[in-house]
Design a protein around this nucleic acid. Structure first.
Lengths: 136, 136
DNA sequence: CAGGATCCACGTCGATACTG
DNA sequence: CAGTATCGACGTGGATCCTG
């Protein structure tokens, strides 16, 4: 296999006794790392306006390898965010579409995306300052 | 170094001609991967209620290595999300505190976190179904 | 067309030891 | 206390080749 469907680093060393305050860190962290996954986010965005085929997505998301697209779609399907519909035609055709859950996720993700767009200049500036105060 | 301060995989193969629609993918993706970074999120959360010291954070975030805490804090500082204040006392003391930018990021992140908490059951269920329909 | 399988380079992380 | 330096194990992702 070489690559798992689980978002990375979801295993979290439990506190001696489970802290009720952070009881669901694992679950939350695993959802957050979906969002942190660039490809997953792009796929979710591309599926905003209706179902898409495999190679359609591949063309839309410039730079993704077919391996990563497959893996990403499997992960999203596993999480119930995307459905996979096979048309047993020749040549084969597979459609991917957002579920209600997936569409629900879009909202907070878009909010985050808009924040990112709104503040990317400040962040870029901060990075530049930081880098030249140090390494410079 | 071995580990960079840049969020991973921010380099994005540009389209032949820059697509105005996706012009700022790089910047946005790099912010999103900050959010996907479990440790960064935890640190930001821990700093919600005022400044904290290094080992204080280390104790609060169960399971983080001192190396990762250092790296995470440097990344957040570089992005202008966190300030680092050194008190030249003996023993030394360093406080970390959210900037306005950092506090602003908290909102969409919390929205996402709440979505994650609200739907983690459905996601977990979807994963189980998927896993036993396949590997089972 | 849609993907499975394999190989390998690289980045990331934890453990450990050491410093101011 | 608050880090830096180094090393080794592991995961991740791209490239390539092959199948139904």
């Amino acid at each position: 296999m070489g690559t798992s469907l689980e978002p990375a680093h979801t295993e979290f060393p439990a506190s001696p006794r489970p802290d009720p305050n952070h009881a669901d860190c694992r679950g939350v962290a695993s959802v957050l790392s979906r969002v942190g996954d660039k490809w997953s986010v792009f796929v979710i965005m591309m599926l905003s306006d209706g179902p898409k085929r495999f190679n359609e997505l591949k063309r839309m998301i410039n730079g993704i390898s077919q391996r990563m697209l497959t893996l990403t779609l499997r992960g999203l399907e596993r999480d119930g965010l995307v459905t996979r519909t096979i048309f047993p035609t020749i040549p084969p055709r597979v459609d991917y579409e957002l579920t209600d859950l997936g569409r629900g996720l879009q909202e907070p993700v878009k909010a985050l995306g808009e924040w990112a767009i709104a503040h990317q200049d400040r962040i870029a500036a901060a990075r530049t300052r930081f880098d030249e105060r140090n390494g410079g």
